[in-house]
Structures are given as C-alpha cells and as structure tokens.
Amino acid sequence: MTEQKRSTYRHGDLRRALVAAGTELAREGGPSAVVLREVTRRTGVTPNAAYRHFADKRALLHAVSMAAQAELARSIEDEQAGLQPTDDDGAAARARLRAVGAGYLRFAQSQPGLFRTAFAEHADLRDAGSADSAGASGLTPFQLLSAALDGLVEAGVLPKERRLGAEFLAWSSVHGLAMLVIDGPLRGLDLEQRTFAAQRLLEMVEKGL
C-alpha cells in the first residue's frame, strides 16, 4: 500500500475507496464482477478491513449500485445542460423531459455494466431518493424525471390530473427499451436504428402523458 493510500484511509475514506473500486469493476463487467476479493486487492486492504464497512457482498453491491445511479444522474444532467435556451416555456419543459430519457438511454448503451449494476440489490423506491444516488444537482435519476414532469405541469403542457404516477409510465417505457437494446433482441440494431427507436419512444412517452 502506498503512503498516499495510508494517509487517505487514515482519514476515514476506506469506504469510499472500496465503493470506487467496486464501481470500476461494475463498469467493466456488471454486478457479477463486484467481487469482494478483487475490490480489496485493488484498494490494497484485507477483507477484514472491508467487512468493517460492509457486512457482506450484498451490502457492498448495494453501495456500488447507488454510485452507478449517481453516474446515471450525471448523464441525464449532462443531456439537460446541452439543451438550447428558449423563451417558450412549453418547449423548454418538453425538451427537459426528453433529455431525461435521452441521457438514460445514452448511459445504458455507453456504460452497460454500470447501467445493469445501477438496479442491483434495490429493495424498493426508497433507494430512488437516496442522496448516494444523486448527481451534481443533488437529484437522483428518479427525482430528475419527477422534476421534469413537474415542469410540464408548471408550463401548462401536462394537465395536473394526469401528473399522478406519470414517473412510473415514463420510466417503465424508457427502461424497457434500454434493456432490450443492451440485453435483449434489439442488441443487433445499428446506431441509426437505435437513435430512431429512442427518438420515437421519447415522442410516444411525451404524447402519451
């Protein structure tokens, strides 16, 4: 172990280092690649040291999945940050919603290992609001979607009575396409076909709401 690592871990950052190592393993091979032995090897500590922070592999994988969610949130934020400004509140609200879906799909295709891991070991929707899953804005992917839908209501695009539960409809649709493209029968689509499918799906979700 290097002196720099000793110093970092002495200040209580071992948990963070273990999660970072696990995240890189997930990036390379998905949730099944998050193996405690390899995580400790990469961080230069013993398994006993890791067990002081995580009770078992499932606890470590859960923490890594939260970190993957945070990267997903940043992908969505990057997509929204690239939107062109407009004085049309309705058009801006629609664009922000489409950006949530576009950032989600882009992350799934560019980081399939992390995307698969982002949903590992989640017990329920409480994880969707965890601060550990948040991006730079302080919002998680689910919260970014909720905020975009609230923006549609505020802009007068989405009737208030249709807002309830809209997250689940939009999320299910986009997540379904993402999984079909990376793990299902749509794996064989080329870039142009995937782009077309994504655009049409996002249009369908917007109009369906």
Rank of each mutant, 00 (worst) to 15 (best):
D87M: 04
L114P: 07
G82V: 08
K160R: 12
L18T: 14
A55N: 13
Y51A: 12
R41Q: 13
V35T: 04
L105F: 03
D183R: 01
T140I: 06
G90F: 00
G188N: 10
L105D: 10
L177G: 03
E38I: 15
P141V: 01
L152G: 00
L201Y: 06
R194P: 15
G22L: 01
G129E: 07
R98F: 00
L180I: 07
T2M: 01
G22T: 09
W171T: 11
F54V: 06
R162S: 09
D127R: 02
G90I: 12
R58K: 07
L209M: 15
A99L: 06
R194H: 08
Q80K: 08
S110L: 09
R200D: 12
A73N: 06
I76H: 04
L158E: 11
R94H: 11
H175N: 13
L209Q: 11
E3W: 05
A26K: 07
R98W: 05
L201N: 13
P112N: 04
D89E: 14
V181E: 15
G90R: 07
V181Y: 03
A33Q: 07
A63I: 11
K207G: 00
F107V: 09
K207Y: 02
H122C: 02
T43F: 06
L149S: 05
R41D: 10
V64C: 09
R74H: 10
H11M: 12
I76C: 03
T140V: 02
D78S: 14
V100Q: 04
L209T: 09
A134D: 11
E71H: 13
E38Q: 13
G156K: 03
